[in-house]
Computed example of a mutant assay.
Amino acid sequence: MFACAIQRNLIPRNRATVDIPVIRQEVAALGMSYGYRHLNHAQVTPLHGVAFRNCGDATYVCVNITALHQDSSARFVFEPCWINLQIVAAAATQDFKTTSANEWLLALVPYTHGRIRFVAEATTPDEARLLGNDPDAPFLSWSDGQGIMRGP
Protein backbone atom coordinates (compact mmCIF):
# COMPACT_ATOMS: atom_id res chain seq x y z
CA MET A 1 0.00 0.00 0.00
CA PHE A 2 2.85 2.39 0.79
CA ALA A 3 4.38 1.77 -2.68
CA CYS A 4 1.07 2.64 -4.36
CA ALA A 5 0.86 5.95 -2.49
CA ILE A 6 4.35 6.90 -3.60
CA GLN A 7 3.63 5.89 -7.17
CA ARG A 8 0.47 8.03 -7.31
CA ASN A 9 2.47 11.08 -6.22
CA LEU A 10 4.97 10.55 -9.05
CA ILE A 11 2.39 10.50 -11.82
CA PRO A 12 2.66 13.70 -13.88
CA ARG A 13 -0.31 16.03 -13.61
CA ASN A 14 -1.81 17.92 -16.52
CA ARG A 15 -2.15 21.10 -14.49
CA ALA A 16 -0.20 24.32 -14.46
CA THR A 17 -0.52 27.69 -12.82
CA VAL A 18 -0.18 30.61 -15.20
CA ASP A 19 0.32 34.16 -13.98
CA ILE A 20 -1.20 36.59 -16.45
CA PRO A 21 0.36 40.02 -15.97
CA VAL A 22 -1.35 43.35 -16.46
CA ILE A 23 0.70 44.51 -19.44
CA ARG A 24 0.82 48.15 -18.25
CA GLN A 25 2.26 47.04 -14.91
CA GLU A 26 4.74 44.69 -16.60
CA VAL A 27 6.13 47.55 -18.71
CA ALA A 28 6.38 49.82 -15.64
CA ALA A 29 8.20 47.09 -13.69
CA LEU A 30 10.83 47.09 -16.44
CA GLY A 31 11.39 50.80 -15.77
CA MET A 32 9.88 51.95 -19.06
CA SER A 33 7.08 54.32 -19.92
CA TYR A 34 3.85 52.72 -21.13
CA GLY A 35 1.68 53.57 -24.11
CA TYR A 36 -1.64 52.09 -25.25
CA ARG A 37 -3.16 52.40 -28.73
CA HIS A 38 -6.75 51.24 -29.16
CA LEU A 39 -6.94 50.14 -32.81
CA ASN A 40 -10.32 48.48 -33.30
CA HIS A 41 -13.49 47.59 -31.40
CA ALA A 42 -16.56 45.82 -32.76
CA GLN A 43 -19.31 43.40 -31.78
CA VAL A 44 -19.24 40.58 -34.30
CA THR A 45 -19.89 36.89 -34.77
CA PRO A 46 -16.43 35.40 -35.25
CA LEU A 47 -15.48 33.49 -38.35
CA HIS A 48 -15.70 29.72 -38.04
CA GLY A 49 -11.91 29.25 -37.56
CA VAL A 50 -11.73 31.74 -34.69
CA ALA A 51 -14.84 30.27 -33.06
CA PHE A 52 -13.63 26.69 -33.39
CA ARG A 53 -10.11 27.44 -32.06
CA ASN A 54 -11.40 29.29 -29.03
CA CYS A 55 -14.79 27.98 -27.97
CA GLY A 56 -15.76 25.03 -30.08
CA ASP A 57 -18.14 24.92 -32.98
CA ALA A 58 -20.76 27.45 -31.84
CA THR A 59 -22.31 30.68 -33.04
CA TYR A 60 -22.14 33.58 -30.60
CA VAL A 61 -21.56 37.32 -30.56
CA CYS A 62 -18.19 38.57 -29.36
CA VAL A 63 -16.50 41.85 -28.72
CA ASN A 64 -13.34 41.99 -30.82
CA ILE A 65 -10.76 44.47 -29.56
CA THR A 66 -7.40 45.08 -31.20
CA ALA A 67 -4.78 47.12 -29.36
CA LEU A 68 -1.06 47.80 -29.29
CA HIS A 69 0.81 48.09 -26.00
CA GLN A 70 4.07 50.01 -26.23
CA ASP A 71 7.09 50.51 -24.01
CA SER A 72 9.47 53.47 -24.15
CA SER A 73 11.74 51.88 -26.74
CA ALA A 74 9.51 49.80 -29.02
CA ARG A 75 6.23 48.01 -29.48
CA PHE A 76 5.65 45.57 -26.63
CA VAL A 77 2.46 43.50 -27.18
CA PHE A 78 -0.06 43.29 -30.00
CA GLU A 79 -3.37 42.32 -28.39
CA PRO A 80 -6.15 40.96 -30.56
CA CYS A 81 -8.83 39.94 -28.09
CA TRP A 82 -12.14 38.14 -28.58
CA ILE A 83 -14.56 38.25 -25.63
CA ASN A 84 -17.57 35.95 -25.79
CA LEU A 85 -20.58 37.99 -24.61
CA GLN A 86 -22.40 34.84 -23.45
CA ILE A 87 -19.67 34.46 -20.82
CA VAL A 88 -18.68 38.09 -20.13
CA ALA A 89 -21.80 40.14 -20.94
CA ALA A 90 -20.42 43.29 -19.26
CA ALA A 91 -17.85 43.62 -22.07
CA ALA A 92 -20.65 44.81 -24.38
CA THR A 93 -20.76 48.18 -22.61
CA GLN A 94 -17.00 48.79 -22.38
CA ASP A 95 -15.23 50.91 -24.99
CA PHE A 96 -11.66 49.72 -24.16
CA LYS A 97 -10.27 53.07 -25.39
CA THR A 98 -8.31 53.90 -22.24
CA THR A 99 -8.26 50.57 -20.40
CA SER A 100 -7.02 47.53 -22.31
CA ALA A 101 -9.00 44.31 -22.53
CA ASN A 102 -6.08 42.65 -20.71
CA GLU A 103 -6.35 44.95 -17.71
CA TRP A 104 -10.16 45.05 -17.66
CA LEU A 105 -10.50 41.27 -17.82
CA LEU A 106 -7.88 40.63 -15.13
CA ALA A 107 -9.53 43.16 -12.80
CA LEU A 108 -13.15 42.12 -13.25
CA VAL A 109 -13.44 38.58 -14.60
CA PRO A 110 -12.45 35.62 -12.40
CA TYR A 111 -10.30 33.09 -14.22
CA THR A 112 -10.10 30.02 -12.03
CA HIS A 113 -9.73 27.18 -14.51
CA GLY A 114 -9.77 26.28 -18.17
CA ARG A 115 -7.74 24.91 -21.01
CA ILE A 116 -5.13 27.23 -22.47
CA ARG A 117 -3.49 26.66 -25.83
CA PHE A 118 -0.08 28.19 -26.57
CA VAL A 119 0.85 28.44 -30.23
CA ALA A 120 3.91 29.71 -32.10
CA GLU A 121 2.66 31.38 -35.26
CA ALA A 122 3.98 33.62 -38.01
CA THR A 123 2.95 37.28 -37.98
CA THR A 124 0.57 38.43 -40.67
CA PRO A 125 1.65 41.45 -42.75
CA ASP A 126 -0.61 43.75 -40.65
CA GLU A 127 0.74 42.38 -37.35
CA ALA A 128 4.32 42.70 -38.61
CA ARG A 129 3.71 46.34 -39.53
CA LEU A 130 2.24 47.14 -36.10
CA LEU A 131 5.01 45.32 -34.25
CA GLY A 132 7.86 46.53 -36.47
CA ASN A 133 8.78 42.94 -37.35
CA ASP A 134 9.42 41.18 -40.60
CA PRO A 135 6.36 39.47 -42.11
CA ASP A 136 6.24 35.81 -41.05
CA ALA A 137 8.40 36.55 -37.95
CA PRO A 138 7.48 34.10 -35.17
CA PHE A 139 5.41 35.14 -32.17
CA LEU A 140 3.70 33.37 -29.32
CA SER A 141 -0.07 33.54 -28.98
CA TRP A 142 -2.52 31.90 -26.65
CA SER A 143 -6.22 31.23 -26.45
CA ASP A 144 -8.47 29.51 -24.00
CA GLY A 145 -11.48 27.29 -24.39
CA GLN A 146 -13.72 29.21 -21.99
CA GLY A 147 -14.79 32.00 -24.33
CA ILE A 148 -12.75 34.92 -23.07
CA MET A 149 -10.49 34.24 -26.02
CA ARG A 150 -7.29 36.19 -26.27
CA GLY A 151 -4.91 35.87 -29.19
CA PRO A 152 -5.34 35.78 -32.95
Results as ranks from 00 to 15, higher is better:
1 M>C: 09
1 M>P: 12
2 F>A: 14
4 C>Q: 11
4 C>N: 08
4 C>M: 10
5 A>I: 12
5 A>E: 13
6 I>Q: 07
6 I>E: 11
7 Q>L: 12
8 R>N: 12
8 R>Q: 10
8 R>L: 09
9 N>I: 14
10 L>P: 11
10 L>G: 08
11 I>K: 13
11 I>T: 13
11 I>H: 10
12 P>N: 04
13 R>Y: 05
14 N>R: 12
15 R>I: 15
15 R>Y: 02
16 A>Y: 13
17 T>F: 10
18 V>F: 04
18 V>G: 01
18 V>M: 03
20 I>G: 05
21 P>M: 01
22 V>H: 15
22 V>P: 04
23 I>G: 01
23 I>F: 11
25 Q>W: 03
27 V>W: 04
27 V>H: 02
29 A>M: 07
30 L>M: 14
31 G>W: 00
31 G>K: 05
31 G>C: 03
32 M>G: 07
32 M>C: 04
32 M>A: 10
33 S>M: 09
33 S>H: 13
34 Y>W: 11
34 Y>L: 10
36 Y>Q: 03
36 Y>T: 05
37 R>Y: 00
37 R>S: 13
37 R>W: 01
38 H>T: 08
40 N>Y: 03
41 H>K: 11
41 H>A: 08
42 A>K: 12
43 Q>E: 07
43 Q>G: 01
44 V>W: 12
44 V>P: 09
46 P>G: 06
49 G>F: 07
49 G>Q: 13
50 V>E: 08
51 A>T: 12
53 R>Y: 00
53 R>N: 14
55 C>T: 09
58 A>T: 15
60 Y>V: 08
61 V>E: 08
62 C>R: 07
63 V>M: 04
67 A>R: 06
67 A>L: 09
68 L>K: 02
69 H>M: 03
71 D>E: 14
71 D>P: 07
73 S>Y: 14
76 F>K: 05
76 F>M: 09
77 V>T: 03
77 V>I: 11
78 F>L: 05
78 F>I: 00
83 I>L: 02
84 N>C: 04
85 L>F: 10
86 Q>I: 03
87 I>Q: 12
88 V>F: 11
90 A>N: 09
91 A>M: 01
91 A>T: 02
91 A>G: 03
93 T>N: 10
93 T>C: 05
94 Q>I: 03
94 Q>L: 01
95 D>S: 11
96 F>M: 07
98 T>C: 03
98 T>L: 08
98 T>M: 05
99 T>I: 04
101 A>M: 02
102 N>T: 00
103 E>A: 06
103 E>P: 01
105 L>F: 02
105 L>E: 00
106 L>G: 01
110 P>D: 02
110 P>I: 00
110 P>K: 00
111 Y>L: 15
112 T>E: 08
115 R>M: 04
115 R>I: 12
117 R>V: 12
118 F>T: 05
119 V>Y: 03
120 A>E: 06
120 A>Q: 07
121 E>I: 04
121 E>H: 04
121 E>K: 12
121 E>Q: 04
123 T>E: 08
124 T>H: 11
124 T>C: 06
126 D>H: 14
130 L>S: 07
133 N>L: 12
133 N>C: 12
134 D>F: 06
135 P>M: 06
136 D>Q: 11
137 A>T: 14
137 A>H: 13
138 P>H: 04
138 P>L: 11
138 P>E: 08
139 F>K: 02
140 L>P: 01
140 L>G: 03
140 L>F: 01
141 S>K: 06
145 G>K: 15
147 G>S: 08
148 I>T: 15
148 I>P: 01
